[in-house]
């Protein structure tokens, strides 16, 4: 059964590393960093978004990163057979072929079987924070091993 790690964001957590897109919410910047660590550690991951529009926004955010942090990725519906190291989706998957799932959607993913690690986020904004708490409860009720870390800690542990 997968481990679930929540990264929590505080209102004053502007100590996150500068994003390439200032309009991106803090927890997206954190998500990009989690993606980057997965890629560095050669762990293939799936990023789940609410909808296509969000998925494309994340795609743009990843491609605009400085090149020393380049992350090869693809959206669902493009890319080579088997996909790039990172795949961005807005559709629930019935079978997971990648060990890591990064959840940016509002609801808990319907299928978590076959995963080793799930990353999720507690954003700053109130409604989103409420939704995140809901998800946290659902994961716990489903008996996943839960971890909760401040978002800033991701930059301390570069080995992911």
């Amino acid at each position: 059964m997968a481990d679930v790690t929540f990264y929590t964001h505080e209102a004053e957590s502007s100590n996150l590393q500068a994003s390439t897109d200032p309009s991106a919410p803090d927890h997206w910047v954190t998500a990009c960093e989690v993606v980057a660590q997965c890629y560095r550690n050669k762990r293939r991951c799936l990023v789940l978004c609410n909808n296509q529009q969000q998925a494309e926004a994340l795609d743009d955010l990843l491609w605009k990163r400085p090149l020393d942090g380049f992350i090869p990725h693809n959206l669902v519906g493009e890319g080579p057979n088997g996909g790039a190291p990172v795949e961005i989706s807005w559709q629930q998957t019935t079978t997971h072929t990648r060990p890591v799932l990064i959840n940016l959607a509002d609801d808990m993913p319907s299928n978590l079987q076959g995963l080793k690690h799930v990353f999720d986020f507690v954003p700053v904004e109130d409604t989103a924070k409420q939704q995140a708490r809901e998800r946290y409860k659902q994961y716990r009720a489903a008996r996943f091993t839960m971890h909760s870390l401040p978002a800033s800690s991701i930059y301390e542990n570069q080995n992911g």
Partner: peptide, 15 residues
């Protein structure tokens, strides 16, 4: 050519 997005070596081209 989406290999500029999906492949490791895209970095070399872009840089």
């Amino acid at each position: 050519d989406n290999r500029l997005i999906t492949k490791d070596y895209a970095k070399i081209f872009l840089a």
